[in-house]
Design a protein around this nucleic acid. Structure first.
Lengths: 90, 90
DNA sequence: ATTATAGATCAAAATATTTTGATGTATCAA
DNA sequence: TTGATACATCAAAATATTTTGATCTATAAT
């Protein structure tokens, strides 16, 4: 959740919407520097939000649908509990 | 989305799961200082994630279900597009 | 073997966010 | 009208995150 907190990470996430991308794809599409992208990728990976798969020199990243689903479930749980007024400061 | 990026804000959001809370509620439940809470509340409010309602000296905060729903929709859209492999670096 | 490419990692610098403590405003109770 | 409570706001300090540029590893092509 906390890993959603950077606009460039959101941009990278959006790029993964259509499937796998490598760092070089992201470089071309965003004009961010390589190390900058690797840094954000690392944060997304540590948060379990993306998966990686190496193929030769390339590393393909893609969204981890399961963890996205878990986040949705958490958001759902936020709104699906009792909404009865609690008295303040009792 | 970016406003989810602080663990204390997530805690405050969780507290609102059961309904409205005021700053003093949050103070009691979290032991955070008043100005610290107001600071985080402000960020959540500016993000449209919570709504407020004043009643006398108290301000009641609650989750804005609509904006939570929009976030869920965005997450859904991330995973519901074509997953066909794209060639890297073409 | 040499060179090129993809990407990870690192330390320092730049930048942004958060915390603190003080002060301000509004409401209410005595 | 005085004092207390709830909360907002502000500037400075503390802390955390991000960016940069350099260097490193691994793979692959010549």
């Amino acid at each position: 959740m906390v890993s959603f907190s950077d606009p460039f990470r959101l941009e990278i996430i959006d790029l993964m919407m259509d499937g796998e991308v490598c760092v070089c794809d992201i470089m071309k599409l965003t004009k961010l520097s390589q190390s900058r992208i690797s840094y954000h990728i690392k944060i997304l990976k540590e948060a379990g939000l993306i998966s990686d798969r190496q193929e030769g020199r390339w590393v393909y990243y893609s969204l981890n649908k399961e963890s996205l689903f878990l986040i949705k479930e958490w958001i759902t749980s936020l709104t699906h509990y009792s909404s009865n007024r609690k008295r303040c400061c009792e």
